[in-house]
Deep mutational scan, measured.
Amino acid sequence: ELIWEQYTVTLQKDSKRGFGIAVSGGRDNPHFENGETSIVISDVLPGGPADGLLQENDRVVMVNGTPMEDVLHSFAVQQLRKSGKVAAIVVKRPRK
């Protein structure tokens, strides 16, 4: 059984690379294997702001206090874009 651990990460936006993450998932883009609608970190740019803080497959729980459960992919992207220079991101990942 999976035990999820929650992490809060504060990312500083890089002028060229943004937050250095890509997200997939969302209500309109469920996971191809299990139908899960979570917003998921799909890519972490090496050397970017999120490197060492976020991991691929982290589930995004909140962005700047806005819940990311059962939202559209575009909504999640929009929340990240409009967060200015700093984003507080809450993620969960299975305990190893």
Rank of each mutant, 00 (worst) to 15 (best):
V91W: 00
M62H: 04
Q78H: 11
W4R: 02
A22E: 14
V61F: 07
L72V: 09
Q55L: 12
P94R: 09
S83C: 14
P67W: 15
V63L: 15
E36W: 00
L2P: 05
L53W: 07
K96R: 09
P46E: 14
V60Q: 03
Q78K: 11
L53P: 03
S74N: 15
M68N: 01
N64I: 03
G20C: 05
S38Y: 08
Q79K: 08
S15F: 04
L2G: 05
I41L: 04
L53T: 07
E33D: 13
D14H: 15
D14G: 15
P30S: 09
R59M: 05
A88W: 05
E56P: 10
L2D: 14
V90Y: 04
E69Q: 14
E1S: 15
G84S: 13
R81K: 13
S83M: 06
E1P: 15
A87C: 11
A76C: 11
D58L: 00
V90T: 13
H73L: 12
V77Y: 09
A88E: 15
K96G: 05
F75R: 04
T66P: 01
D28G: 10
G18E: 15
V63A: 01
V90Q: 09
P46R: 14
K13Y: 09
Q55T: 08
E33R: 08
R59A: 03
P67M: 13
L45S: 11
R17S: 15
G65V: 02
E56H: 11
D14Q: 04
L11C: 04
A76K: 01
G25R: 00
R93N: 03
R81D: 14
H31T: 09
K82G: 07
F75C: 15
V61M: 14
G84V: 09
G65C: 05
G47A: 06
L2Q: 08
Q12A: 09
K82W: 07
V60H: 00
V90L: 10
S38G: 05
E5V: 08
E5H: 07
V23D: 00
V61C: 08
K16P: 04
E56M: 14
D51Q: 07
R93D: 00
V77D: 12
K96S: 11
K13Q: 13
A88V: 09
G52E: 05
L54W: 03
D43E: 13
W4M: 14
R95C: 14
S38N: 09
G25T: 03
N34A: 08
N64L: 01
T37C: 12
A76T: 03
S15C: 11
Q6F: 10
V44P: 02
S83K: 07
T66V: 12
A22K: 08
V63E: 01
D51N: 09
H31E: 07
P30Q: 05
V77A: 07
I89Y: 02
S15W: 15
N57R: 10
I3D: 08
S24F: 02
D70S: 10
F75K: 06
I41P: 02
F75N: 06
P94W: 07
L2C: 08
V61H: 12
G20A: 03
N64M: 00
V40R: 14
G35L: 05
G84H: 13
S83R: 06
Q12Y: 10
R27I: 13
S24H: 09
V9L: 10
E36T: 11
L80V: 09
Q55R: 12
V71M: 05
K13I: 05
P94N: 12
E36G: 10
S83I: 13
E33T: 15
S42W: 05
S74F: 07
V90K: 10
F75H: 09
P49I: 04
K85V: 09
G84F: 07
V23P: 01
K85I: 08
H31Q: 12
Q78N: 13
Y7C: 11
K92D: 11
F75M: 05
Q55F: 11
G20D: 03
K92R: 10
V86L: 13
R95M: 12
D28W: 01
E36Q: 06
E36C: 10
A88H: 10
K85D: 12
V71R: 06
N64W: 00
V86Y: 11
L2S: 10
T10C: 05
V23Q: 02
L45N: 07
A87S: 09
W4Y: 13
M62K: 14
V90A: 09
G18S: 14
V91T: 02
R95K: 13
V40M: 15
I39E: 01
D70F: 05
G65R: 05
L45K: 15
P67G: 06
N64G: 05
F19N: 02
L80E: 00
V40I: 14
V9S: 00
N57M: 12
D43G: 06
I3W: 10
Q79T: 13
V91M: 04
G65E: 13
P46G: 07
V60L: 10
S83H: 09
F19P: 01
K82E: 15
G18T: 10
E69P: 02
R95F: 08
P49C: 03
K16V: 13
D58F: 02
P49K: 01
R95I: 12
L2I: 12
G35P: 04
D43M: 08
M68T: 12
K85H: 09
D43C: 08
D28S: 04
D58P: 01
Y7G: 06
L80P: 02
D51R: 03
H31M: 15
A50W: 00
F75E: 12
P30R: 04
N34D: 13
V61K: 12
P67L: 12
Q12D: 12
V9R: 03
E5Y: 04
L80R: 01
G26C: 01
Y7K: 09
R17P: 04
S74H: 12
V91C: 05
G25I: 02
L2H: 09
V23N: 03
H31D: 15
L72P: 14
N64Q: 02
S42M: 13
V23T: 07
P46W: 06
W4S: 06
D14N: 04
S38F: 09
R81H: 14
Y7N: 14
T37V: 09
S38W: 14
N57H: 14
G84I: 10
D51Y: 11
M62P: 00
I89K: 01
D14V: 06
T10Q: 14
A50C: 05
P46S: 13
M68Q: 03
E1L: 13
V23G: 00
R81V: 13
Q55P: 00
T37M: 06
I89A: 01
G20W: 00
V60R: 00
I3M: 13
L80Q: 01
V40W: 15
V86A: 10
N64E: 03
L11D: 00
A50F: 00
G20R: 00
E36A: 05
D70Y: 08
E69V: 08
G26D: 03
M68A: 00
L45P: 03
G84M: 09
E33C: 05
F75Y: 14
I3F: 13
L80A: 01
R27A: 14
E5T: 09
I3H: 06
E5I: 09
Q78V: 04
L72E: 09
R59P: 00
S24R: 14
S38C: 04
V44K: 01
K16G: 13
P67A: 07
N34Y: 05
V90S: 10
K96T: 09
T66N: 13
L54I: 14
A88C: 14
M62Q: 11
W4C: 08
S74L: 08
S83F: 06
R17Y: 11
S42T: 15
N34S: 15
G20T: 01
A88F: 10
V91N: 01
K85L: 12
Q6P: 08
K92Y: 07
V91P: 01
V63Q: 00
A87P: 02
S42P: 01
N34V: 03
E1M: 11
H73F: 08
G84W: 07
D70K: 08
R27K: 13
S83Y: 06
R81T: 13
L72K: 11
S74Y: 09
S38P: 07
P67S: 13
F75A: 08
Q55G: 04
D28N: 06
R59H: 08
G48S: 13
F32M: 06
F75P: 00
W4F: 13
V86R: 10
E1G: 03
L54V: 10
